[in-house]
């Protein structure tokens, strides 16, 4: 496998609480640049919570708190001098359920760009095309860019959301079960996309699909009840896991 790249994001004894309820326990992870890091684990084990802690989406939920350190590029993202809006601009996110805005396809893609000020029409058109191409959607929608995005199929909508996320050129792309609502063909396209995108981005992927984790990721972490049981190279996790729980889970004897 490829040699080590520099660390883009990492946590140290990171714990997270919903009110009194602790959802994450002392997580230590290094996420490498230009690599795909996948998280697997049974439902409710805290994968989404972890992902949403990276770009501070959990700030939106009342009475949550965290302890420990969450760093991106060596900066504590929960530090008092960090502007959460700028942070989120640099960390893109694709949600499990596709969330197109009730606007046209074109406006969906350009939304992120226009947040930071007006852009010229040609610039916008260029970004729309390149983003849609990267999300393998261009050919399907190029003739109806100004139609509502809600007229797209579920799989197309999800790829639109991926295109929207990459349109602002984030450094990290967080993907929370991006294929859970997709058919095998769309899933294949998204997986292909992930492998392409990792040349430019650091990708963190949550998936319930073991084969998917094995296919696209370089590192895999196994979560169980809020704890990170094992974290290693994907090949190691899937061929010779060192923990019994991991082996039970990936061989389907558990969860």
């Amino acid at each position: 496998m490829a040699k080590e790249t520099s660390i883009k994001a990492r946590t140290q004894t990171f714990s997270f609480f919903y009110g009194q309820k602790q959802a994450l326990f002392d997580i230590n992870i290094d996420m490498h640049e230009n690599r795909v890091t996948a998280f697997i684990g049974p439902s409710g084990c805290g994968k989404s919570t972890f992902l949403r802690s990276i770009n501070r989406m959990n700030d939106l939920i009342e009475s949550t708190k965290h302890t420990g350190l969450m760093e991106v590029d060596g900066v504590d993202v929960y530090g008092s001098d960090v502007d959460v809006v700028t942070l989120r601009r640099r960390i893109g996110m694709v949600f499990q359920k596709s969330t197109p805005f009730p606007k046209s396809i074109f406006e969906n893609i350009t939304y992120g760009l226009t947040l930071t000020g007006k852009k010229s029409k040609s610039e916008l058109e260029e970004v729309v095309e390149s983003s849609l191409r990267r999300a393998a959607l261009w050919e399907e929608v190029k003739d109806r860019l100004h139609h509502s995005a809600l007229g797209l199929s579920g799989g197309q909508q999800q790829r639109l959301c991926i295109a929207r996320a990459v349109s602002v050129n984030p450094e990290i792309l967080l993907m929370d079960e991006p294929c859970s609502a997709l058919d095998p063909i769309s899933t294949g396209k998204v997986e292909e996309l992930i492998t392409q995108l990792k040349d430019q981005y650091t990708i963190v992927l949550v998936t319930h699909n073991m084969q998917q984790a094995a296919r696209v990721s370089d590192y895999t972490g196994f979560f169980l009840m809020g704890k990170l049981i094992e974290f290693d190279r994907t090949r190691t996790i899937f061929t010779s896991p060192s923990k019994k729980e991991t082996e039970d889970y990936i061989t389907g004897r558990f969860g």
Partner: peptide
């Protein structure tokens, strides 16, 4: 309006 739209927008770095 679905909450998810708000999250999607905020996640893109909007205020």
């Amino acid at each position: 309006v679905p909450r998810s739209l708000r999250e999607a927008s905020l996640a893109l770095g909007s205020t």
